[in-house]
Computed example of a mutant assay.
Amino acid sequence: MPQLQEYVEIWTDDAGSPRRLVWRTRRFRVTDRPTTLVGPAEWWAPFGDHDVSPGRAPLAITGWRFQASTDDGETHVFDVADDDGRWRLLRVFD
């Protein structure tokens, strides 16, 4: 599935979990427990070619997946990632 090239506005709670989202001028509220998306930690990139047996490269939160709904009932599952201080929309599932 191709990644989208859209940015969205996201409001988070004190722990950094998404709570609200504005996408294409529509306001959504997060209606489930957000799931973290993880990937190799950025600081690990210079060591990426090294063998880390028997473990794996250190992981970091790279984004979030959550369900969100508008007041009139439009609901989607969103994948988002922090892109240098802006939230990039990765995928939308209907």
Rank of each mutant, 00 (worst) to 15 (best):
Arg26Glu: 14
Leu4Gly: 08
Asp72Lys: 02
Thr75His: 07
Ile61Lys: 12
Asp14Ser: 13
Ala68Ile: 09
Asp84Tyr: 10
Gln5Tyr: 08
Tyr7Asn: 13
Trp43Gln: 12
Arg65Ile: 02
Val22Arg: 15
Phe66Asn: 06
Leu21Thr: 04
Leu4Tyr: 12
Arg91Tyr: 06
Tyr7Val: 02
Phe28Lys: 06
Trp23Leu: 05
Thr62Asn: 06
Ile10Thr: 01
Pro54Tyr: 04
Val52Trp: 05
Asp71Val: 02
Val8Ser: 11
Gln67Val: 08
Phe66Val: 00
Arg20Pro: 00
Gly55Thr: 09
Phe93Ser: 13
Thr70Lys: 04
Asp13Met: 10
Asp49Cys: 08
Arg19Pro: 01
Thr75Ala: 02
Val22Ala: 11
Leu89Cys: 07
Asp14Gly: 10
Trp23Cys: 07
His76Ala: 03
Asp49Gln: 12
His50Asp: 12
Phe78Cys: 05
Asp71Ile: 11
Trp64Tyr: 10
Ala81Leu: 10
Val92Pro: 03
Gly48Arg: 14
Gln5Cys: 04
Arg56Tyr: 01
Arg29Lys: 11
Leu90Arg: 15
Gly63Leu: 05
Val80Ile: 02
Val30Glu: 10
Arg91Gln: 14
Arg56Thr: 00
Val92Met: 08
Asp94Trp: 02
Phe28Trp: 02
Glu74Thr: 14
Gly39Phe: 00
Gly63Ser: 07
Arg20Glu: 05
His50Glu: 14
Gln67Ile: 05
Val22Ser: 14
Phe47Pro: 00
Leu37Glu: 10
Phe47Met: 09
Glu42Asp: 15
Ala57Asn: 09
Trp43Ser: 15
Thr36Lys: 12
Gly16Ala: 03
Ala15Trp: 04
Arg56Cys: 01
Arg33Tyr: 08
Met1Pro: 13
Val8Leu: 10
Arg26His: 07
Gln67Gly: 06
Phe47Ala: 09
Ala68His: 06
Thr35Glu: 15
Val30Gly: 01
Arg29Leu: 07
Trp44Leu: 01
Thr25Arg: 14
Asp13Ser: 09
Ala15Gly: 07
Leu59Thr: 04
Asp49Tyr: 10
Asp79Tyr: 11
Phe93Ala: 09
Ser53Cys: 08
Leu21Asn: 07
Trp23Ser: 07
Glu9Met: 10
Asp84Trp: 07
Phe93Thr: 13
Val8Arg: 11
Trp43Tyr: 14
Asp51Gln: 11
Phe93Trp: 14
Ala81Asp: 12
Met1Ser: 14
Arg29Cys: 05
Asp72Gly: 01
Met1Thr: 11
Ser69Met: 10
Leu59Arg: 11
Phe28Glu: 01
Trp43Ala: 15
Pro46Ala: 02
Val38Asp: 14
Glu42Ala: 15
Gly73Trp: 01
Val8Phe: 04
Asp51Phe: 03
Thr12Ala: 13
Asp72Leu: 04
Arg20Asn: 04
His76Trp: 04
Leu59Ser: 00
Ser69Glu: 15
Ile10Lys: 12
Pro58Leu: 00
Thr70Leu: 02
Leu90Gln: 05
Arg26Trp: 03
Arg65Tyr: 02
Gly16Lys: 09
Pro54Ser: 03
Leu4Gln: 15
Pro40Ser: 14
Val38Lys: 13
Asp94Arg: 11
Thr12Val: 14
Trp87Asn: 00
Val77Arg: 15
Asp79Arg: 14
Arg65Glu: 15
Leu89Gln: 06
Ser69Asp: 11
Leu89His: 09
Val92Gly: 10
Glu6Arg: 13
Pro54Met: 07
Gly55Trp: 08
